[in-house]
Design a protein around this nucleic acid. Structure first.
Lengths: 147, 147
DNA sequence: ATCGGTGCAAACAATTTGCATTAGA
DNA sequence: TCTAATGCAAATTGTTTGCACCGAT
């Protein structure tokens, strides 16, 4: 599978009959440039630095479109609002630190195991496995142990 | 671990210095009686059948309290609104059918495996493992295969 | 020249909060 | 009695939508 980050949005969009607008391109670039998850609001802020009266509604519209194309994905980490990121290969999950709020990505065969487990018998066809682990990250755990 | 469903809310509440009100008791009972997840709105509806001008705000306040006591838990299944359920033992996860919308609980050692996997080396202390699998349930898959 | 995309503002939905009143302990 | 909990209504927050104008193809 080609990593979504390497994708050329322009081609993808036009290929599906959509237009490539500066707004869409910018949202995509902001998303790719970010090391961590962004809320729609954060994306809006960042793109606004370049395009002054860029509208939040367009952020949402673009994000929805990108996720339909499989380029972006919304992740829900327990909060009310969603976070967005470039679509990752699906053996990827999130570690959310309760103390510092950091969100780490983690790869492993866990998601694959879930799939395997489910395919064994009870007929549920797994399409999307969302695994979010809340806890305390290594850094915070070390600090906490000292107190 | 004692299953939360067997808990006496009255004792728990008073034990922690809270009062047992009919509203709280009813929310808890509705939650226990429900076989599946409920939204705050649904809980409100059901309790309103007994207590006419029962307020939504109280549903939220009660749910927050119950979750602080570890009796209830909010689950996010990808939708904007949350769902609530009686707190389950933590080796429990959700299978959400994209076709019929049904949500099934599933038990397994998967969550335990995640814990184990994480404890092996990189220091993240897992406290809450949330696993949600989206896909197609057995019933819908069978029907779909026929078409 | 089209028609899809954007900005804007208003609409929405879910949840929270301030405050006066009510009712558990 | 005394303070916590409720009802109510208004405020927030995150997201969506209708519509006239604009601009990518």
């Amino acid at each position: 599978m080609v990593h979504a980050g390497a994708m050329d949005v322009g081609h993808r969009l036009r290929g599906e009959g959509y237009r490539l607008t500066p707004q869409r391109q910018l949202v995509w670039e902001v998303l790719r440039a970010a090391q961590h998850h962004l809320t729609a609001e954060e994306i809006h802020e960042r793109v606004s630095a370049t395009v002054p009266d860029f509208n939040v509604a367009s952020v949402y519209r673009t994000l929805t479109l990108l996720s339909e194309l499989g380029l972006a994905k919304e992740v829900r980490l327990g909060e009310a609002h969603g976070h967005w990121e470039v679509a990752h290969p699906d053996d990827d999950f999130h570690l959310v630190c309760r103390v510092c709020g950091s969100v780490d990505h983690h790869q492993g065969d866990l998601v694959e195991r879930v799939r395997l487990h489910l395919s064994g018998g009870h007929g549920f066809v797994a399409e999307d496995v969302d695994l979010v682990v809340h806890g305390v990250c290594a850094a915070c755990a070390t600090v906490g142990a000292r107190t």
